[in-house]
Design a protein around this nucleic acid. Sequence first.
DNA 1: AGACCTTTCTAAATCGATATAGATTTTTCT
DNA 2: AGAAAAATCTATATCGATTTAGAAAGGTCT
Lengths: 336, 336
Amino acid sequence: MSEEKQLEKGEKPTLKTISRLSGLAVPTVSRALNDAPDIKKATKVKIREIAERIGYVPNRAGVRLRTGRTNVISLVLSTQHDLTNHTGSLISSIAGAMQGTPFHMNVTPYFPEEDIMKPIRYIVETRSADAIILNQVTPEDERVKYLMDHKFPFVTHGRSLWCDQHPYYDFDNEIVGNLALRRLVKRGRKNILLIAPPRDQFYAKHMIEGCNAAAADLGVQVTTHPTVTSDFPRVPLTDEVKSFLLDNPNIDGIICASTSAAMASVASLEKVGRTLGDDIDVFAKEAVSILEWFRPGILTVFEDVTAAGAFVARAAMQAVRQPGEPPMQFLEKPDF
Amino acid sequence: MSEEKQLEKGEKPTLKTISRLSGLAVPTVSRALNDAPDIKKATKVKIREIAERIGYVPNRAGVRLRTGRTNVISLVLSTQHDLTNHTGSLISSIAGAMQGTPFHMNVTPYFPEEDIMKPIRYIVETRSADAIILNQVTPEDERVKYLMDHKFPFVTHGRSLWCDQHPYYDFDNEIVGNLALRRLVKRGRKNILLIAPPRDQFYAKHMIEGCNAAAADLGVQVTTHPTVTSDFPRVPLTDEVKSFLLDNPNIDGIICASTSAAMASVASLEKVGRTLGDDIDVFAKEAVSILEWFRPGILTVFEDVTAAGAFVARAAMQAVRQPGEPPMQFLEKPDF
DNA sequence: AGACCTTTCTAAATCGATATAGATTTTTCT
DNA sequence: AGAAAAATCTATATCGATTTAGAAAGGTCT
C-alpha cells in the first residue's frame, strides 16, 4: 500500500475527495480553494497541491445550485444571417477571451419575428447566465431597459441611449460616415447616395449624421435612400438602387453600410450602364474583408469584430466579478 | 384573504412551492411532473395545472446535480474562420431545432493549433454536456474514437470511417465531385484542375473519388492540385493557381471545394490572361450563396448547412434521450 | 373478518458546493 | 498565569431536484 493516499480509479474528484486525502473538513477545503481569509497559508498550499495533483475541477451544478452563479455568459443573437455574417468570428473571439477563465459561453438565438424579449426574460427569470451580451442595439432598446431595471449584468455591442450607464463596445460609425463621404468627395464625387443601416439600429443615426456633417462641410449633396437599408436582401436592393439611379442620374457615389449592400449596388450599376470607378464610386463598410476580391476599386473600411468580441467578453466578465467598478466602455475610432 | 393559495410575489417557483400550493409532498410533485406510473391521474392533472399557472420551470442546477444530466448540447468548433463562414447559420439552425425542448446549446471553440482533444476531454470528464456535435471530421478522427470508447453521445457533421456506428449528417461530396466534372465536360472542358478540401478531411477523399470516377468514365483528365486545398488563404492560393495555370496551359476547368477557393481561382485567371466562361470554366461548391454576385458564369452547387444543423441537433437529442435506438444518419444527395 | 395485494403517497438521503455559526487552538496582553 | 482576542478549523444547514425504501389507504379474496 502506498504511503500517499490516492484517488480511486475512475472516481471524479470532489471536495470530499480532497477532504479525505488531506484530512481536513470539506468546508475548509472549499474555503482554501476560494482563498478565504480564515485559512492558514500552509493549508491553502497543501490543499491546492492536492487539488492540482488529482485534477480537481469544481462541479458547476453544485456551485450554481448553492450560489446562483452559473459561470455562463449568454450571447443573444438574431437568427437572421447573411453572407456579411461575421457571427462566427464574433463567437470565436468571445470564446477566446474566456479561455482560461471559469466562464463558458452560451449562444441563445432568437427569431426576430418573434418576441425579442423572450430569451432575455428567460435568462433573467431562470438565472441561466451571469451576464448577457447583446448586439444590434436600438436607441431605446427594450432589452437594455429591462436589464438595467433588473440590475442584470450585460454588455452591448453597439451603443444605446443610456450607454453611459452600461458597458459597451462600439465602432464609431459617425466617423465612418464622415470619412466615407470625404473619400468620395476627394475622388471628385458630389452627389452621394447613402444606403444606411436598418433605421431602428442606433448606428444608422450615427452613420447618417457623420455623412451629413461632412456633406454640409464640403458643400456636397447626400441623400439617404428612402426605402432600402443595408440589411435588405440583395435582389430587391439591386432593383431599388437601379431605379433610384435611373431617377437620379446625377448620383456619382454610393456609401453602403454593409458588404452585401455594396455587392447589390455594384450589380445595379451595370444594369443602368454606369461604370464603377469611372463615372461612379462605391464605398462600403465591411466586417468581412471580401469586397477587394469581388471587384477592384470598391472603397472599403474594415470593422474588426474580433476586437469587439474580445472586449465585450472581458466587459461581461468584469460586470459579473466587479459589479461595483465602472462599466467597461469603448468607442473604436476607425482610421482610414 | 383569497381562497386559492397564491405564489408570493417575486418568489421563484420550485417544487416546494407547488408542494405548498397543492398540499402534496415534494417528491410526489416531482414524480407527477415526470409522469411516473405511481401517481394518480387526477393528481398529475392537478399538479400540472398549478405548475402551468405559476410558471414553474425546473431549476437546471438542481436537475443536473441530482441526475448528472445537463440538458446541454455542445457544439465544438474550430476558431478558424473565413468568409465561407457558415458557422452562424449552423449555430442558428441547431438552436432553432432545440427551441421548445429542454436543451440548450453551448458553443465550445477550440484553437486548431492547440490540442484538438482538449475540449472533448473536458466535456466528457466534467460531464458538462449530454452530447457533442463535431464537424470537420477526419476519417480516423481521434475525437470520434475517444467518444465511442467512452460511450459518450455525439453526432458528426461529416462522416468518419466508423460512421455506421454513430449518428451523422453528411453531404455526399462524391456526387458533388462527379456531377461537377460532368458539368464541366458538358461545357466541352477536358483538362480539369481540382482544388480539393483539406487532405485530412474525409470529404476530400469523397470529392476526389467522385471526380476521378467521372473523369475515367468520360475519358477526360483531372488533376488534384498538388499543394493547395480549398481552405487556403486566398492570397497564396491565387499565386499557386496562377503558377499552376502557367505550367499547365491546357487546363480548361477548375473545380473548387469552397467559395473562397473559387474567388481566388477566378482572380488568378486574370493574371494569366484567361477568360472565365470563354477559354476556362470554374465550378464551386459553396455553403453561402454568393458567387453568383461575385462574377457571372461561375458554376455552383449549394450545400445547405441549415439542413445539416437541424438534423445534427435532432440526432444529438435522440442520442441522449433514446440511447438504445439506432443512430440517426443521413447522407444528403446533391441534386443539380 | 383477516390476510394479501395494489395503488398512491411520504420520509429521508443524496448529488457537490458554500454560508453561517460556533468550536477549537494559538497568540497577545495585563 | 489567566483572560481576552485573534486565527483557524469543523458541524450543520442549505440550494432544488430525484431516488429509494417504506408507510398508508384502498381493494380483493378466501
